[in-house]
């Protein structure tokens, strides 16, 4: 069943939705749609985006939008693409926007299937590194040593001991034409990547770092600052891949120590409160350094 018609305004994602103060995801979605333009159908899995945009009778979406269940957005998107093809509506494009839980974990099989089939879907993962809609539980996208409600730091725990799944690389291994990472802190770069992705046909993937003030526990006016720090320290490298090859990275003028990024977030507080956290902080710095080297992030380098 359909909700009532949405209100008329310039933007394709209008105000009045119920996202938290300072939500990185909501900001990202508005700019994604500015880049795609109006001739798109958006598919979303269950998650924050679905919850805060779809209370029955209200909708901020000024493009057709469909949510079905948690783990099937890529397959629903494939179905929409198949229908558009069958009906001869080639101008309308399909964009899926899902969180990291839906993308890295529960919907991963469906995502891989969609990529393997080569369906004409731009899949955008808005990554805040945990199941924020249900209160911040660990996901495959949770970075190492972050404390989550299902893998909390404690007397005998330093938070998540495993690595964040390297999804851009896994997605790229499907041999798709375009893969990029972006950050809501760099909106011009984000929109440029979305626009570029729209010029390709076949499956495309963009992973956007969307800091979550409620889940990471930082003041809600600092979303963009926290996002910038994540990029500047090297933990969130911004790059573009075409046909499996890196074609560009966002260079860093100066390397920010990871502690500058981590210390303001409650999910890492335990690393700063005990001496034991030092070794984890060093490991996180090593991970950032590895990214800097792997992607050639330093301007001088």
């Amino acid at each position: 069943m359909c909700a009532a018609k949405v209100e008329t305004r310039e933007s394709l994602f209008v105000s009045g939705h119920r996202a938290c103060h300072g939500c990185g995801l909501a900001l990202a979605v508005r700019h994604i749609l500015e880049a795609t333009g109006p001739n798109v159908i958006v598919v979303s899995p269950t998650g924050c985006l679905e919850t805060f945009t779809s209370p029955y009778g209200y909708s901020p979406w000024r493009v057709p939008w469909i949510h079905h269940v948690f783990e099937n957005a890529p397959a629903v998107a494939s179905g929409v693409v198949a229908a558009l093809k069958a009906q001869g509506r080639p101008v309308t494009r399909v964009v899926a926007i899902g969180g990291d839980g839906a993308t890295f974990d529960i919907g991963f099989g469906a995502l891989s299937g969609m990529l393997e089939r080569g369906d004409d879907v731009l899949y955008i993962c808005t990554d805040n590194g945990a199941y924020m809609n249900t209160g911040g539980q660990r996901s495959g996208a949770t970075p190492s040593w972050a404390s989550t409600t299902t893998h909390p730091a404690g007397k005998q725990s330093v938070g998540k001991t495993e690595r964040k799944k390297d999804l851009p690389e896994i997605v790229a291994a499907h041999g798709i034409p375009y893969v990029a990472t972006a950050s809501v802190a760099y909106l011009r770069d984000l929109k440029k990547k979305v626009k570029k992705a729209m010029t390709f046909h076949g499956p495309r993937y963009i992973q956007i770092d969307t800091p979550c003030p409620s889940g990471w526990n930082f003041p809600s006016h600092l979303t963009l600052e926290v996002g910038r720090q994540a990029v500047k320290c090297g933990l969130v490298p911004l790059f573009e891949m075409e046909n499996g090859k890196i074609i560009g990275v966002r260079k860093l003028k100066k390397k920010l120590p990871v502690t500058e990024y981590l210390q303001g977030q409650k999910r890492y507080r335990h690393l700063f409160e005990s001496d034991g956290g030092q070794s984890e902080l060093q490991k996180l710095q090593a991970e950032a350094d590895k990214n800097i080297e792997k992607y050639g992030l330093m301007e001088s380098g």
């Binding site: 998107a77 494939s78 179905g79 198949a82 069958a86 009906q87 099989g109 469906a110 299937g113 393997e116």
Partner: peptide, 24 residues
């Protein structure tokens, strides 16, 4: 017809949901 060869029954039904919502 468009024949979508999926990786699971879960996705087969999901493809139908998307296609049906899109009017097919």
């Amino acid at each position: 017809a468009q024949y979508v060869r999926v990786e699971s029954e879960f996705s087969a039904a999901s493809v139908l949901a998307g296609a049906s919502a899109a009017g097919s």
